[in-house]
Amino acid sequence: MWFWTFKYILMGPILRLIGRPKVIGLENLPESGPAILASNHLAVVDSFYLPLMVPRRMYFLAKSEYFTGTGFKGAFQRWFFSSTGQIPIDRAGANAAAGALEAARRQLAKGDLMGMYPEGTRSPDGRLYKGKTGLARIALETGVPVIPVAMVGTDDLNPPGTVIPRLARIEVRIGKPLDFSRFEGMGGNRFIERAVTDEIMYELMQLSGQKYVDLYAADLKNTGATPEEILESGNRDKPAA
């Protein structure tokens, strides 16, 4: 109920006004049954515009801190993130990744749509970064289709580090479902999981038109270096051919 209130009565009209969103490829979305929507990640508002433009309810994983605040602000945050389909997960500790994957599996077992960002974090500069293999592991274990989704223009509306949105034109491009049934029974094989992840990232690159960088975005944020600096450092460490 809260989701539809958010979508059609409260925030939906505002999001449509400032982002003038357009969706392409809705015919690629199944009318029922579980699926993973694998999206690039340019801005915080990706998690608002994607469910806004998808006719079915969908879910995302979100850090538990969004749901533990106190007072009016805390209550509003809990309502807001629950309304947009965010599922709280504890990202601290050694079992954080396993807990997140299990939460996604439970939601898919209910026949729902699960939105996931294979890059693991927002792109720092608008380029597409190397995907992590957790999404591939879930897809292989559950057998659900993976649908690539490209968010375009959300970083113009909500550039990194900004709070107040700017007028922009958002486009949500939904690609054809990817079938990984040829890898049935191979879940847990890290080489297969990497191959599946790379195939998903290639489709996202094609859909979004982003330049691909073969580095993890999180590593970039942690070091503060540019992709070029990290790649050049790696090249210097390799022996000459």
Results as ranks from 00 to 15, higher is better:
residue 118 P to A: 14
residue 115 G to V: 14
residue 124 P to C: 06
residue 115 G to S: 14
residue 101 L to E: 13
residue 113 L to N: 07
residue 133 T to I: 05
residue 103 A to K: 03
residue 112 D to S: 14
residue 100 A to R: 00
residue 113 L to E: 13
residue 108 L to I: 10
residue 101 L to I: 14
residue 111 G to D: 12
residue 102 E to P: 00
residue 129 Y to G: 05
residue 130 K to T: 05
residue 131 G to T: 06
residue 105 R to Y: 09
residue 122 R to G: 08
residue 124 P to T: 03
residue 116 M to V: 15
residue 126 G to A: 04
residue 135 L to W: 02
residue 133 T to Y: 01
residue 108 L to A: 13
residue 134 G to E: 12
residue 103 A to M: 05
residue 124 P to K: 05
residue 100 A to G: 15
residue 127 R to I: 02
residue 111 G to V: 10
residue 112 D to Q: 09
residue 130 K to I: 00
residue 122 R to M: 13
residue 115 G to R: 03
residue 114 M to E: 12
residue 121 T to I: 05
residue 112 D to V: 00
residue 132 K to H: 15
residue 119 E to R: 06
residue 122 R to E: 13
residue 105 R to T: 14
residue 116 M to Q: 08
residue 133 T to R: 12
residue 116 M to F: 09
residue 115 G to Y: 00
residue 124 P to W: 01
residue 112 D to L: 00
residue 115 G to L: 14
residue 102 E to A: 15
residue 130 K to M: 11
residue 101 L to T: 07
residue 132 K to W: 06
residue 129 Y to E: 09
residue 110 K to S: 05
residue 127 R to G: 03
residue 112 D to I: 00
residue 114 M to K: 06
residue 110 K to Y: 01
residue 109 A to I: 03
residue 119 E to M: 09
residue 126 G to N: 01
residue 104 A to M: 13
residue 121 T to E: 10
residue 125 D to F: 04
residue 110 K to P: 02
residue 100 A to S: 15
residue 100 A to D: 06
residue 105 R to H: 10
residue 111 G to F: 07
residue 124 P to N: 10
residue 120 G to R: 04
residue 104 A to I: 02
residue 106 R to T: 13
residue 111 G to M: 09
residue 106 R to N: 14
residue 108 L to R: 06
residue 120 G to T: 04
